[in-house]
Amino acid sequence: MWNDLLLILDATLRISVPFVFAAMGGIFAERSGVIDFGLEGKMLGGAFVAATVAYWTQSAWWGLLGSIGIGIIFSMIHGYASITKRGNQVVSCVAINIFAMGLTVVLANAWFGMGGKTPQLSREARFMSIELPYAEEFRDIPILGDIYYEIISGHSILVYIAFLMVPVTAWIIFKSSFGLRLRATGENPLAVDTTGISVNKTRYQALLLNGILGGMSGAYLSTAHLAFFVKDMSAGKGYIALAAMIVGKWRPYPAMFACLLFSFLFAIKDKPEVFDLLKGIVPVKLLNSFLDMSPYILTVIFLAGFVGRAVAPKAIGQPFSKEK
């Protein structure tokens, strides 16, 4: 039982990484007043570029850089459409997501001809798990040693970076002067403008960070979690991250916990023990599909605010115009 729990928590952590990256990225964009439903596209694009660049250069780090690049490109397109051209932000996001869906498969097929997949990456070209110091030695310590060995140690570097991003995001948003401007831009852009700070510039800066994090979420999928890119790899994870961010009320730590909760569901749904446990309650024939759809259903339930109402930044989705 204890071992099962350790394994489940370990899996939860691994699964949560793309959610955490994307949710932090989403926080930056939305706190500045720009809607970001485009995390899905950035994740998908990031996953493809990371796998492709890592394969060509045989270096996971170049892959990561590539994914950041595509994330920034996508978020700048979004910024141009929604900040500069004051277009409909939701439309722009959906456009990016669908564009990414098409582009990744077209390029993957043209370059590799493997039905939308990229070639398997060698160990050097992906992020392998790293053992933290003294993991073996501490193993003998009851409980804490296990936790350290099984859960905390033995992940790829991106897992640690993702969880480091949470305090970093929290610090930038709530403690830095840039964060103050960012939040003010999302709540009351006119007031920001009267202090002589450019609303649009602040929003572009927020989107830059958003693109970096969005791209990284994809890199994790294709160069750490798996060792290749495959068509539609993100499978709605970008939207789930967005839901986690909303459930977390646009705050980094609560958003991280929401990500962990969703990941926990992904982690347990394939466990035979869970299957046995629910066998008595749900008919066996339906159980598999019930488990398969549970993360999506719970996303809907959480989003519906059955766990408390979420209040978005006030100026979200509104392009700024001085003339108003």
């Binding site: 397109i77 459409a81 929604s82 051209k85 277009g87 409909n88 932000q89 439309v91 722009s92 959906v94 456009a95 990016i96 997501n97 669908i98 564009f99 990414a100 869906m101 098409g102 582009l103 498969v105 077209v106 097929n109 939308g116």
Partner: peptide, 16 residues
Amino acid sequence: HMVVLIQGLVILFAGA
């Protein structure tokens, strides 16, 4: 999937 890509572009240019 080229057509999916074109869709994305159409939504971007005609919508956003």
